[in-house]
Amino acid sequence: MRAGGMLLLSPVILAAIVPGLISGFDPFAEVAAPLLPPTEGHPLGTDDLGRDLLSMLVAGARGALMLALIAVSLTILIGGAVGLLAGWTGGYIDNALMRFAEFIGVLPRLLVLLLVTTLLGPSLLLVATTLGLTSWPGLARLIRAETLAQKHREHVMAARALGCGNVRIMLRHLAPAAIAPALAVAGPIGASAILTEAGLSFLGLSDPNFISWGDLIRNGQSFFHQGWWLAAFPGLLIVQTCVAFALLTESTTNDP
């Protein structure tokens, strides 16, 4: 499954790293007549402002991956830190951290995003950060449980007996055990970041200074009868990318 995921994801990664390789047009510029169906030169057609759709999709890859990367990294960073700390220290700190995790966990995430983007203005970075700041509680719980299990294993006890500091023990001996659960949530969180951003775009809350696939779908939907390709291709690309993320995860958790 992992191979399948990589296969699906690699063109997206390629587009994000070297956009020029796939398509040579400025994604914001008018380069041809508006609403051209897929033709030679513009293999996916042009949109209502005469922009090359393939170039826009390619440009969107960078935004999508950045979004997923920020959301996932923040989640792993915060979830990992909170989980390790809570599991290792126990007592009041553990209790306080877990209550806080619960607080964040029950917040309706889409509502928080709606609030933040409506009130502060739509920005890709803001969406990515908010997603990261609200997605970690589940992971924190998993890692806390893992840490609790590891805490009394021999190698940790030994390190403790040898006088290793708390930080050292957490980083050297406990953190490695947290890697598996962290990788397991990375896929779903990356996918849900992209899907959530698409949802916000549908509500008209996308950052116009980035190209977002979700926003391309929204625009394309309103031109469905003039140009089906405008919604279809960005939609397929979102499906492809999110399936790829999910596949990568499935493989890390289950296949022996």
């Binding site: 949802g199 939609g235 399936v243 596949l247």
Partner: peptide, 18 residues
């Protein structure tokens, strides 16, 4: 299941009624 999971839900809703 993977494809349904990966389709933006607003798009699914719109396509369904078309």
């Amino acid at each position: 299941a993977l494809v349904l999971f990966a389709v933006p839900v607003f798009w699914l809703g719109h396509m369904l009624r078309l």
